[in-house]
Structures are given as C-alpha cells and as structure tokens.
Amino acid sequence: MLQIKNLHANVDGNEILRGINLTIKPGEVHAIMGPNGSGKSTLSYVLAGKDDYEITEGEILFKGEDLLEMAPDERAAAGVFLAFQYPIEIPGVATMTFLRTAMNAQRKARGEAELNTPDFMKIVKQKASELNVSPEMLKRPLNVGFSGGEKKRNEIMQMALLEPTLCVMDETDSGLDIDALRVVSDGVNALRNSERGMLVITHYQRLLDHIVPDVVHVMSAGKIVKSGGKELALELEENGYADFVNAA
C-alpha cells in the first residue's frame, strides 16, 4: 500500500533524508528506530505533506497513487494519518468541535454525508472511553494545557475515530506512564487489520512488546541502514546504535 523509493528531502538546503526505501503491505506493522536527529520525524512529515521540505529525488506511492502530488488534506482524506510527536494546541476550539470538523471534512472530501449529532456523539464517546479520555477533556480546547500523556492519548483517539488506512505514529509512547502505554497500545492493536498499514517510530523496545511489529528498521543519517524482524529491536536495546551508525 505504501512504497517509498529512493526518497531524498532537504530542509533549508540541508539534506536530511538521503535515499529512503521502504515498502509497507496492507496489514503490516513496521517500526522505525534510530538515533536522535536521524530523520524519523522528517520522514513522517514528508509522508503527511508538510511543506517545509523539498523533495529532491525519489517517489512515494500510496495505494498506487503519487502521494507527493497530493495536498495534506487530500492525503488525510485518502487515509494518511500522522500521530504527532508534539501535538499542536488550538486555543478556544473544543476538542469535540475539532474532531467533528475533521471527521466531516474528510467525509465531505470523499463524497460521503456528514454525521448527524447523535451518531457523532455516540462514536466519540465510545472511542474516548476506550482510550481513557474523559468527557471533560473533550470539552477543553484542543491540547491546551493537556499533559504530555493526555496529548498522546488524544492523538490515538483521533486516529481511532478517523479510521485511516496508513497510521504513522511518531514517538507516541514518549511521555506515557505504564498504564497509559498499555491503554494506547491496546487502542492501536484494536486498529490492526488486514487492510491497514502502520509505521511506528519509537526509541524503546518496551512499546514493541505491546505493539508487536512485523518489520523493524534502523534509520541513521537519513537512510535505512538495517531491517529485520522484531528481534532486531531487542538487539538494539542491548547494544545501542553504534554498529549501525558506523556502518552508515
């Protein structure tokens, strides 16, 4: 469903991604690990279409279509979701209002009817309770004053609501306490199915105990330097990145 071929991307003239190759098939969960500054978040932003990046080489196909030609909102409507490493605050906009506007925007872009209020409320309440997001929090302005963990749970709740086909999660586990890690992982696992692909960016093996990946990649200096099964994560936990960084 996702094919990234020889992707090169610059920020302000600095080459950050230097030839990424990555293929995710429907139903697969891929994890990306790698040292700080290696370009993991950059890759996630490029997938979502943030316009600070200049693509100098390569292509991305999503369900056979050229993803790089699509605007961010078109990508979202086509099923690309990014759970942000640092979710953004929007003062004055109740979380509930935000969710509803987002859902209806995507439905409209796909030519579907808007959800009516009772149906929307029902779905939101259910997803919120599954992710331990309280009804009070839904009334608060989006992410404003939310704790680090609350923000991350909110991201995954949005993901559950919007039901994307490609879920990109950037360090969703950082800032979560042990119980929240379980709740969020359960939420993510519940979304796993034969059609949906996932890309999980993390620094810790711990998350991968809960969300067991099919493939683990190591990213260093803008390239994927090694790929393997879930054992690769354990190996990294044990030895650090030194071997791979030098290899790059």
């Binding site: 990014l82 929007i90 906009v93 209002t97 935000f98 925007a105 995507q106 919007l162």
Partner: peptide, 19 residues
Amino acid sequence: QMFYCQQRGMTDEEAIALI
C-alpha cells in the same frame, strides 16, 4: 496549527474558520 488541521483533513478555509 494550519498543518495540524490539514493533516486531519481540513482545507485551508475550513482550518481558518475553525481557528
């Protein structure tokens, strides 16, 4: 803020009206 809203599916106008 704009990018966050767009990533969730909103167009420019929808994002501005919301914010």
